[in-house]
Design a protein around this nucleic acid. Structure first.
Lengths: 321, 321
DNA sequence: CTGAAAGCGCTTACAG
DNA sequence: CTGAAAGCGCTTACAG
């Protein structure tokens, strides 16, 4: 520990550096230490520090592949809320994979202060030796600390809107990811359609969460959809809906006259697609913010109550909205 | 170290766990240790391990705000190349800020094996006590290990294409970020226009890298652009171009007839905008892959040569392409 | 082939 | 108010 050049002991330096010097170290010595620290550009070693105290100041956020810009929003929300008492690091899973218990284990080694897991794989236990908060994990056990969306207002609005526009037979384009929230979106959508007197085609397809994959799936199915009398397709994510739009455009179909399209997420780019996309808005930054607040509370030992952020519909041209 | 329940010493366990047991530990003991490890779910403590050996297996990638989906591609490239000998963690700067030397310092504490810095702030020294490779840092000093784009083919194609389409007076919409690559895009574009006999309007604007900010900047300037006789706008990034498209659409301008638009990056969503966007494609995943390879080489002590990935133009409807 | 011991750079009771 | 010492969980020469 180089900074003992201040002419004092290692212990005293540690106290000053960690701001625990109030009433323990005299002012002149403390400032002498601070000067030495500045001059030498000293910075406490994270490994040694977290070994000694058993835990560090890292917060790790485990998220699925970032190609969905939705996660960028979540991350921003977490970042902005965490402040600089904690250092946020991110880990992304492999493309198409969801965060799992194995990922959690890998990061427990780092002795983080806490772990945030976004859109975890369904049916994982996801417990750890440090505080964990789960984002967008509607199937999590009661005991888990979670932050979720309340999808029903958004989905109800969407289905009511489709009904108003005269749609009676629609199809659902699902994601392939094994995430609970996708299952719920699908089920709630089916339920809302049944209640509204809209039938959902048996010809539902699924695709990876990329524009290309969705376009391929759409190309494969669109003929059959047409023959089945489908007039609207609802996609589990905006990126999927983009693929539908691309294929419809390439085939010369008019949206929404020949085929209406809607998605989930309301990504920033959804206002500039051709045509602009109707979408169930899922406020990512707010999800991140709420999750970070709950982690902070858990770290402070404060009680936390469950959160469900309401989703709402954003109507745009792709459904004649 | 719980795993000494295998009935052997701590040192032996350490050897086995780290795979350094060849010719040092007998087979029966080694397998007894491995069984114990499995049973107890033991996992070596990262802090203690990196303290003891002076460095860990973490690779940190410092990137600017992820709202630009371009970075998701870069990250994917890095991830896929790094393999599982190293553990990748990401850090993102605050919105609008570029990675700086201060960020590097904050992560040196973690004793990573190496650090990757994407789109660093211009004019920073960015040296560290561990191997560092810079991505998209065309102004970096000679001594730095870097992976860059060679923009000239893409920009030359873009300008030639605009010329072919009859444009003679265009405007440039720059980003506000203090990143070297933006400066270079702008300069190269100006140079190519001059060479091709296209004049660049004095009314160039700049905006944060978001659709909203670009839309606001465009709204503010578009009237003046029109009076100035501008027929095309080239934006420093696709996200900026989306903002231009949105405003043009809202004003009832036809793209490209009334105003042509082009960007940089070729994001996945650029094929589905209204109209589809012409863009200088910057392959993000390849940038990430190249950077990871160079870091791996540096860690192995292998020599590495500079890399510059060529950019190329993707013509779409927004320029009549 | 195996184990006892030192040391990585800190933090935190505990004496003085 | 200040310092000497133990200990955090590992790794790695070094003896045996």
């Amino acid at each position: 520990m180089v900074a003992e050049r201040a002419g004092t002991s290692i212990a005293t330096v540690s106290l000053v550096v960690n701001g625990k010097d109030r009433g323990r170290v005299s002012a002149p010595i403390a400032s002498r230490v601070r000067d030495a620290v500045d001059e030498l550009g000293y910075v406490v070693d994270h490994a040694a520090s977290s070994l000694a105290r058993g835990t560090g100041d890292l917060v790790v956020l485990i998220a699925p592949d970032l190609s969905n810009p939705f996660f960028a929003e979540v991350i921003r929300g977490v970042r902005d809320t965490l402040g600089d008492r904690y250092q946020l690091v991110l880990s992304v899973t492999e493309r198409g994979a969801q965060p799992s218990t194995a990922d959690l284990r890998r990061f427990e080694r780092l002795r983080p202060a806490g772990i945030l897991v976004d859109a975890p794989a369904a049916g994982e236990s996801l417990d750890a030796s440090v505080p964990v908060v789960l984002l967008d994990a509607p199937d999590a056990p009661e005991s888990a600390v979670t932050v979720d969306y309340d999808l029903s207002p958004g989905i109800d609005e969407l289905v009511a809107h489709l009904r108003e526009q005269g749609h009676e037979h629609v199809v659902y384009l699902d994601g392939t990811a094994r995430v609970a929230t996708f299952g719920i979106r699908h089920r709630m959508f089916d339920g809302a359609c049944a209640a509204a007197g809209i039938t959902v085609s048996e010809l539902g397809a699924r695709a990876d969460l990329t524009v290309d994959a969705a376009a391929a799936a759409t190309e494969h199915a669109i003929e059959a959809w047409h023959e089945d009398g489908v007039t609207a397709v609802v996609a589990a994510a905006d990126t999927l809906a983009y693929g539908v739009l691309r294929v419809a455009g390439a085939m010369g179909l008019r949206v929404p006259e020949d085929l209406a399209v809607a998605g989930f997420d309301d990504l920033p780019s959804s206002s500039v697609t051709a045509p602009a996309l109707t979408s169930v808005a899922l406020p990512g930054a707010e999800l991140g913010r709420a999750a970070a607040l709950r982690l902070l509370a858990a770290l402070d030992g404060t009680a936390v109550e469950p959160v469900a952020l309401p989703a709402r519909l954003v109507r745009r041209a792709s459904t004649g909205g």
